[in-house]
Design a protein around this nucleic acid. Sequence first.
DNA 1: GTGAAAGCGCTAACAA
DNA 2: TTGTTAGCGCTTTCAC
Lengths: 374, 374
Amino acid sequence: MTNADDKPPENRSKAVAPRAGRLGPTIRDVARVANVSIGTVSKALHNSGSLRKETRARVLEAVAELGFRPNELAQSLHRGASATVGLISNDSFGRFTMPIMEGLEACLAERRIAVFMCNATDDPERERQHVEQLLSKRVDGLIVTSRRADSRPRIDLGETGLPVIYVFSQSDAPGSFCLLPDDEGGARLATEHLISQGRQRIAHITGPERFEAVRLRRKGYTKSLAMAGIEYDASLCLTGSWSEAWGREAVDRLFAEPAKAPDALFCGNDQIARGALDALTLRGIRVPEDVAIVGFDNWEVLTNATRPPLSSVDMNLYELGREAGRHLMTMIDGETYGGVSRLPCTLVVRQSSQVADAKEQAGAKGIQEGHDHA
Amino acid sequence: MTNADDKPPENRSKAVAPRAGRLGPTIRDVARVANVSIGTVSKALHNSGSLRKETRARVLEAVAELGFRPNELAQSLHRGASATVGLISNDSFGRFTMPIMEGLEACLAERRIAVFMCNATDDPERERQHVEQLLSKRVDGLIVTSRRADSRPRIDLGETGLPVIYVFSQSDAPGSFCLLPDDEGGARLATEHLISQGRQRIAHITGPERFEAVRLRRKGYTKSLAMAGIEYDASLCLTGSWSEAWGREAVDRLFAEPAKAPDALFCGNDQIARGALDALTLRGIRVPEDVAIVGFDNWEVLTNATRPPLSSVDMNLYELGREAGRHLMTMIDGETYGGVSRLPCTLVVRQSSQVADAKEQAGAKGIQEGHDHA
DNA sequence: GTGAAAGCGCTAACAA
DNA sequence: TTGTTAGCGCTTTCAC
């Protein structure tokens, strides 16, 4: 019952919907301009059905003229899927979340899926609100990430069978799908590399015991020692905080008695490694000649800033994010996954662990040369 | 013409819309269960109109029973606004983008506005695609951020009068609204602080000339010197890269001739400052007794890791993000802004710039004590 | 106080 | 080949 000649309401400037003008032309407008029906416009847009060439051309012309852009909200409503996923982070978008986000976004963008960013910073109430909002917005899937020592309670999604992936975080609920780096494997890469460099007394300076990553990395470390027939010396395995200060302190302890000093350090993260390196330098101990060092995280602002540049294990978080994206897409398509999946780490060898003339060692599986961006 | 007793289609398991079950109950279902009309349910949900107490109760009961969650997509379609904004980053979600995102998200979450994250990494084509997608999703506003030396081309939004804010980035188009930290002011805080510590020969080691931030910070530095009656010595102002290596190299140059050596360093970022600090320490020059240092960015992984901890200028990026969110909300409500707005920086004083017994200096405007998280 | 119905912009099934 | 129309799930006006 609207009057057929419905003009744009230029007159009612203070109408109830002041943003109407911003919403742009609708498919109806296109139909009017092209002088065809709405259904025809839709067909022309999706290249579906059969249409006379010139009709389609006329429609596309009108589309261009009006600057028509289909309203995805309406499409989603119809389709029952929003081409949208939510990413909930508890790491305050921290250093570890970033590369994961990038990988995820890059992967999903290819299928034109958009990502809602939500920061819950370990506040259960905020998390609940975000989940609530995401469900209301009818996201097609959910990614949960966080840098946590222990596994987290699973997200409560009620009856909705919404696909969820825990990346770089673990849910305690059975059946949840978790994507993590292979900490143990990473540690083995590092330790075996040091052994291959001829080191025999390899110390491990690492973070707080309560982190599963700490326990797994130590496991990899001890396994590699065992495989090489090196006896594990508990006094060489030091647990502390994730800081440079702890790295310095640990070195002070390890090198208190020169006779018992190690000839290599495998550190739980790059900050510890840097602290250790600084402390060694201060003591006049040469790296890598006297003591070789390998860190963990491959955080380039650190690894490339030290002298010498720091070898480190890379968790390939960007790749982890991509993988999460891929899995999520197949889950959205109906697939189901569960359990913990771990992605391999890579060792990036720089000067801190390799005396110059031993360089030919590199090239083995999971090992790459560090390219220092000058 | 649908049969009134429309059952959920449990039978057609391989139907065209396999996700239908996931979409959850609709307002129609609620109406059926509560035995009222759809309109009544809506009123009950929004506490609008007048409703008998028990009717409302009945509706809410049905809502709870079914786990009904209003479909925001449908609401948005009706309302003509999506309660959604886009954030386009060209910094690959880097170190600077993170705190901005956090502030933005925190601010918008209060009004239940969700944020789409898009990473364009300085690729114009990807950026265009993202913008296109965001427009299709009918976002209510756009935030553009990037760490760039120069101003960027403005985002092309066609006819849509979509609100846009450039945060930590500048558009070359006149009329654009840009939100930036007050680099010049930050530099003045740092320089004046050093002067107040009795320093007279203050060097400035900074980044590449092509960054506007570099030029502005130097301007602040020279102004402060002038105000204090200290003559500007061009040989004390060194331009290089943003790296620790450059910080070390610059110190080597500055201290080549001990007679001409400065008694304070104001560095263009914390990495440079750290490199400088390390180089000084290596030369046996004491910080802060012999040379005081102030950095820029207040990147805590760096500032708290050095010995002594590093004083630094904080750009308050989190606050910048919040401010962007606030402005964007008022712009969505119809307000318009333009031009460049700069937010004040803060100086965080730690030990690198302040000899112990001079501590009472702190407390002035824009200056705060650095609390080192152990 | 409550119900009916017209949209919001789009798709797809069906008619013409 | 093209037009018509019934939804998608919700809000809101207007009858009753």
